[in-house]
Design a protein around this nucleic acid. Structure first.
Lengths: 288, 288
DNA sequence: TTGAAAGCGCTAACAG
DNA sequence: CTGTTAGCGCTTTCAA
């Protein structure tokens, strides 16, 4: 592997000139810049990340802490956040180091070893053991998920309360009088996972406000879990169960069967602008 | 941040002693080892990753190249591999740097900059543009997915041909006379993605061998895509469509409805040892 | 606009 | 068993 000294020698300049030509941190004459660029190309030079980190105290790496429990839900949302973080980081010239440990020691290892310039913590819980550590280490950090005490912290999350509220609004607006929320898995609810609590909160508040019967049923992320939850939901709200393929309307645009019964919910049709991007490519050819 | 020199001073030993106490690369008396450990604890010392990389030429980081197209399928398998790589790496003391770019430049950036000790490439295709680069860079690499020319390469993959073959064997063994494969998305098949080609190959070969009618239908990873594919499959094999909740048997153990009709396929029951681990936690309480 | 040189923090000979 | 010290490759003053 060629070093910056090799480049300097070949270009007939000093190492500092090469360094500055690379970083642009001080003016370099067009002529020398050209010769340096040539030398770099000829040698296939690429700066040694470790040496750079040592000398500059920057790694250009961001640490992403995504607990295994989040990954294992196999949730599309989690994946989107992960790829989003990686993509965004790259667009700023940073790479991403991913760890799936959520213990304090792991986070400390990343931060203390100067492996990363900053941290992104996913699946933050209301009393997250990782939080006290953030003060101790010097690293800037942003949390995905909202803990109980957000003092001095940068937090981002989906607005789950609004999601719950809007869903009820939508259904009540269509004349439904009893609604059920197939909520987060029981484990998440029991440990008071923030997203679970908040969507339930929004759901309940709006249901009470608009006067519809309502219930919340925990729901595991699996086929039998969902079946179980649906059955329980129908039991609890006392609605008659009348789901059959003939009562599920077709989308007027693409004639795909709606997964919901009764009036079609536009959001679930792949035609809808609010449908997940992944659905776009799945539109039947007869679709506009 | 305290340095190794600070530790050495506090412990009253030389830096090399601290270094060796840390790495265990040469014998240290129990007494000094103890004092070094104390000093490290007192100072909260943690070695500077960049400095270590520079001096030792090792980063203890593995580069994982997972193309966006693989991540976007939102496939549980892809996720399992990613978390598997991260977990396995950690168990060897390595961290994982994840990039979602699949272009040559990105791989070169990782390798040339000495950012990583080795590479894992996911979603390798039969003529993958990243492969020529692997010779150029000095990094050891393992591929997940099998290219056309595997000469000198370390490749790992699921045995898709066997999967296709076994599925047909299983169904034919249960007396079915016409079978359809809901295959990979059309895009994957069109670009001859290896896994798509191989599962189809195994499926066809076994179908021919055992003399059952068969067809392959591309299938997008979405609700409407699957519905479309199922309909097309029934059309093509000319079977009568008779899927209703009453014809789907219950599991004898847990009485969960089988997602398949006719004779229950044990594999799809959460009771089955071969069911995905994530299903375990979803078993109804009445299940053994 | 460019050079020379002093570190950055750690590893690994070499020398006891 | 332990200490001394020369680098590892780059950044960044300080000086010209």
């Amino acid at each position: 592997m060629p070093t910056i000294a090799d480049v300097a020698r070949l270009a007939g300049v000093s190492v500092s000139t090469v360094s500055y030509a690379l970083s642009g941190k001080r003016p370099i004459s067009a002529a020398t810049r050209e010769r340096v660029a040539d030398a770099i190309r000829q040698l296939g030079f690429s700066p040694h990340a470790g040496a750079q980190a040592l000398a500059s105290n920057r790694t250009d790496v961001i640490g992403l802490v995504v607990p295994l429990r989040a990954l294992e839900t196999n949730s599309a949302t989690v994946m989107e956040v992960v790829t989003g973080v990686i993509t965004a980081a790259r667009s700023h010239g940073d790479d991403v180091l991913v760890i799936t440990e959520d213990d304090v020691a792991a986070v400390r290892r990343l931060a203390a070893g100067s492996r990363v310039d900053a941290l992104v913590l996913m699946d933050v819980e209301r009393h997250d053991p990782r939080l006290p550590l953030l003060e101790e280490v010097r690293q800037p950090a942003v949390l995905i998920g909202v803990p109980s005490d957000t003092h001095g912290l940068a937090c981002v999350d989906l607005d789950f309360a609004a999601a719950g509220r809007l869903a009820v609004e939508h259904l009540a607006g269509h004349g439904h009088t009893s609604v059920a929320l197939l909520g987060a898995p029981a484990a998440a609810i029991q440990r008071n996972a923030n997203y679970a609590v908040r969507i339930i909160g929004g759901f309940r508040a709006e249901a009470v406000r608009s006067g519809v019967r309502h219930t919340v049923v925990p729901c595991e992320a699996s086929y039998p879990g969902a079946a179980e939850a649906v059955a329980q939901a129908f039991d609890e709200v006392g609605a008659s169960r009348r789901s059959s393929s003939t009562t599920r309307p077709r989308c007027r645009a693409c004639s795909t069967r709606s997964p919901t019964e009764g009036s079609p919910c536009r959001v679930t049709c792949p035609c809808s602008p609010s449908a997940p991007a992944a659905w776009r490519s799945t539109l039947p050819s007869r679709c506009p």
